[in-house]
């Protein structure tokens, strides 16, 4: 029977092979280092609390048209519900701020930001957007006292 020394030797050999052919692509490493610049230090974080893709049990309780992916982000003062529909690599967003209120919404993706307005009922929509890591940042219109709210990043 092979013992631990044999295991360790084989493991070392495999480690060298993996390091040669499957290490982190340099462009991704650069992008990860660049992620630091996207920090929102002046915003409240709205954490991802529901995703219909993975939260099966509750999926039936969530309103929606039934064909999109439902995401819900929650901060202390604001909940942001978003439905994402896909067509190939493009994404459409339809969102709702709760409690309803008008706001400016920055859709942050990679190195670009798309800014849209939520109406007085808190509704907004955007697209087509590219697929990939995305975060929304909401600034309540005319409110300079309250901090903005930024959602967790999620790949859509």
């Amino acid at each position: 029977m092979p013992d631990e020394t044999d295991h360790a030797e084989l493991e070392e050999e495999l480690r060298r092979v993996v390091a040669q052919i499957d290490s982190v692509p340099p462009a991704l490493l650069e992008a990860a280092i660049g992620a630091f610049a996207w920090r929102t230090i002046d915003a409240d974080l709205a954490e991802l609390v529901f995703d219909s893709l993975v939260d099966h049990d509750r999926a039936s309780l969530v309103r929606g048209t039934g064909h999109g992916r439902m995401l819900s982000f929650r901060a202390s003062t604001l909940t942001i519900d978003v439905e994402v529909t896909s067509q190939g690599n493009s994404r459409m967003l339809v969102g709702q701020l709760v409690p309803p209120q008008s706001a400016t919404v920055d859709i942050r993706q990679g190195d670009r930001v798309i800014t849209i307005e939520a109406d007085e009922l808190g509704r907004f929509s955007a697209g087509p957007l590219q697929a990939g890591p995305t975060s929304l940042r909401c600034r309540v219109s005319g409110d300079i006292v309250r901090p903005s709210v930024a959602t967790d990043w999620v790949a859509i």
């Binding site: 991704l28 992008a31 990860a32 992620a35 996207w38 974080l45 697929a131 975060s135 990043w153 790949a155």
Partner: peptide
Amino acid sequence: PDAADVFQTTWLRLAEHLDR
């Protein structure tokens, strides 16, 4: 592309959660 998205999402997520 999916692996790249997960990789980048994880680091973006960490950047926002550093003080949490």
